[in-house]
Computed example of a mutant assay.
Amino acid sequence: MFSSRLSAFAPARFRAGRSLAALAVAVTLLSACASGPTADPTADWSPNRLHAEAMAERDRGNFERAITLFERLEGRAAGTILAQQAQLEKAFAHYRAGEQAQAIATLDRFMRLHPASPALDYALYLKGLVNFQDNLGFLGALASVDLSERDQRAARQSFEAFRELVDRFPESRYTPDAQLRLAHIVNSLAQAEVNVARFYLSRGAYVAAINRAQVALTDFQGVPAAEEALFIKYRAYQALGMNDLAADARRVLTLNFPQSAFLGLGQAPERAASWWRFW
């Protein structure tokens, strides 16, 4: 109380001195903040050091820190091969961090900016891999998730990337693995059509069941799902009273799958463990 009164009646010169002192302290604090945490500690790093530090952070699993460093490297080494490498490494770090959308966006930007890059085959492979893993899901391998029962958009995008890689870069070191994954994706897409056909069959929508089963047979030839697709056609034609077409579907099923469990049953056999588990 007394101190507040004293300040109210203090000489103007004294109050002015206090104001100047407070202003000086504020300026000092602002200067300290500017040189503190907000300053870029990598400002004097060379591009090579930035790259080495970013890779070290990535290898330690510090993906967010690695991404930040790769972004700084991309800007600092703009127009060089090292900047291209930073973009690809950033995409990989996003992928490892579970950030599929960011990884795809980074790869699309890379391919748009560098259509003649010698690393274009790797960019396509990584794009296919990101979507492939997105289709599988983080815990898919542990939770017995059937890929054919998931949203197929990621599978189709993965297929397109791998197919472009195989078509454009047949000698690439990434092509053999891409071909294996392509076969896997084709099986998944075909089985997805069969899943829909089976659903229609169970609901008595026989024409719709026939149409979806035919898509699996026409668009994805030579896949395991063809066995059930033929059986669905046989049962649907039979239900519609179209006996000639039913007999023809059964004949093709017998010819292509002579040991099929469908042949001895009036209905689909119990589904075993996920058909795609050939890894």
Rank of each mutant, 00 (worst) to 15 (best):
A34H: 08
D134K: 06
A83L: 04
R5T: 10
L253F: 04
A39Y: 07
V194Q: 02
R60A: 15
C33G: 13
A78Q: 09
D167R: 12
A39Q: 14
D44G: 12
A97M: 03
A197E: 03
E57F: 13
A197G: 12
T106K: 02
R18A: 13
P176W: 06
R173G: 00
D167I: 12
V252C: 05
P224E: 10
A10S: 09
F231S: 06
R150P: 07
P11G: 05
R181T: 08
Y122S: 02
A143K: 05
A123Q: 01
A22F: 14
A32T: 02
P47V: 03
R150A: 02
A66C: 04
R18V: 11
R60L: 15
L20P: 01
W279D: 14
Q259A: 15
L20A: 03
E74S: 09
A116Y: 06
T38Q: 13
M1Q: 06
D219S: 12
S3N: 05
R163D: 14
F2Q: 13
R271M: 14
S188N: 05
A39F: 08
L180R: 06
L136W: 10
A119P: 10
P47M: 02
A273Y: 03
T106G: 13
P47K: 00
F169K: 02
A34N: 14
Q102N: 09
R150Q: 13
D167F: 03
L265Q: 13
A105M: 04
R150T: 15
I67A: 08
L82D: 10
R153V: 13
S4D: 07
Y95Q: 09
G98V: 08
L230P: 10
S19R: 13
L20S: 11
R109N: 09
G137R: 06
N62W: 02
S19K: 12
E164P: 15
A249T: 05
G98H: 02
R15S: 15
P258L: 14
A97P: 04
L107V: 05
A91S: 07
I185Q: 04
E227P: 14
Q221E: 15
G79N: 07
L124D: 08
L120G: 10
R58Q: 03
L189I: 07
G241D: 10
A236T: 00
D146E: 07
A247Y: 02
A83I: 09
L30N: 07
F2M: 14
V215M: 06
S46V: 00
S188Y: 00
L240R: 06
D219Q: 09
E57T: 13
H184A: 04
E74Y: 05
Q102M: 04
L88Q: 08
G79H: 02
E53S: 10
Y237T: 02
L265P: 05
A119I: 00
V186S: 13
L107D: 01
A26G: 10
A8R: 11
V215E: 09
A91F: 09
N187F: 06
A226Y: 03
A239H: 05
V196R: 05
F199C: 14
R60N: 12
A229D: 05
V207D: 04
F199V: 15
R212G: 02
